[in-house]
Design a protein around this nucleic acid. Structure first.
Lengths: 170, 170
DNA sequence: AAGTCGAACTTCGATGACGAAATATTCGAT
DNA sequence: ATCGAATATTTCGTCATCGAAGTTCGACTT
């Protein structure tokens, strides 16, 4: 498969950027954004295959990871929908399924009974941990061309970008 | 909305990385990968809103962009399905809709009649160009915290990653 | 030259996701 | 205190997506 490709990944990337620039994009922007999406697209493909072993879809992974990152704090279905970029109505059924598998539990919020609080069960945490360790394999492979200092620099630059993200919505 | 957040985006990011590391991920890996996904998640949200103006879903955008990047070369439905990370059967209906809107055309491949060749129409190219110019706005905003040399360095590092992606599938 | 295997595309049934409406609860104003 | 607006969640109808089976065609074998 890799042997039959005519151009290198860099050449393809450069050609893609040129297409976007020709259509009206700025070069310094498109070069970065296109590269970011190339990486995530490839990672997404691998996640689908890796998570299939754990009977986990990407949507379920998103819920699992959101709850894990929240730590002790419970999250509501609405918050999970926001964090997962799906409609609240879609989250209902997703949580039904995951609760049925024993990955999470829902309980009413006593202080505000319109809310429902969702938290991971022990099994949910175990699955999260297993998924992180599985995905870390391909993620580590993805970055194997970078030295430690380069990874540090890459993270630093991306974190600058992240720091500005929330202010743009206005 | 931005005013009511307790922690900065960097602090949240650091906490997320810590969660993944606690679950068994490597820090130098998780710091980069988590940051990449933070950026793409935010960009995806904006794309949905921006492309709604053009009556364009993300799936349709993927087809449009794949064909545009291919330039003069026609692509088959299977290739488009691969490039868009969807099942071939899903591409059939998607192409039906887009052909109905006059964005692309399908014609049989004379040299191999099991194949169908898909190409953009004039309207398809126009919509692609409009979408690129629209999305460049938010993409440019996203990178506004980086200097030119930092953008260059960020692109360089990401391109190193891209160069190694194709060799991992083995 | 016929037959078989494989590739490409489409149809079909079932699942997942969305938006709108319905339900239930809280908050604020009169 | 009560009425009205806002919030959170769930149902419901519709459309997109998936995997599997079906169909058509090309390539390779014998």
């Amino acid at each position: 498969m890799a042997a039959k490709r005519r151009q290198t990944a860099q050449q393809e990337h450069a050609a893609d950027v040129a297409t976007y620039v020709a259509a009206g994009g700025e070069e310094s922007v498109q070069r970065v954004i296109t590269a970011v999406f190339s990486v995530t697209k490839k990672l997404d493909q691998w996640y689908v295959r890796q998570f299939a072993d754990l009977d986990l879809t990407q949507g379920e992974w998103s819920v699992l990871a959101s709850l894990a990152r929240a730590g002790d704090t419970c999250l509501t279905p609405s918050q999970l929908a926001d964090l997962s970029n799906v409609a609240p109505s879609s989250m209902t059924h997703r949580l039904d399924k995951m609760a049925g598998r024993g990955l999470l539990q829902r309980r009413p919020d006593e202080s505000n009974r319109t809310r429902t609080l969702v938290s991971l069960t022990k099994d949910g945490w175990a699955l999260f941990s297993a998924a992180v360790r599985e995905s870390n394999v391909v993620e580590s492979d993805t970055l194997r061309g970078l030295s430690d200092s380069e990874r540090h620099e890459l993270a630093r630059l991306l974190e600058i970008v992240i720091a500005g993200l929330d202010d743009i919505d206005a």
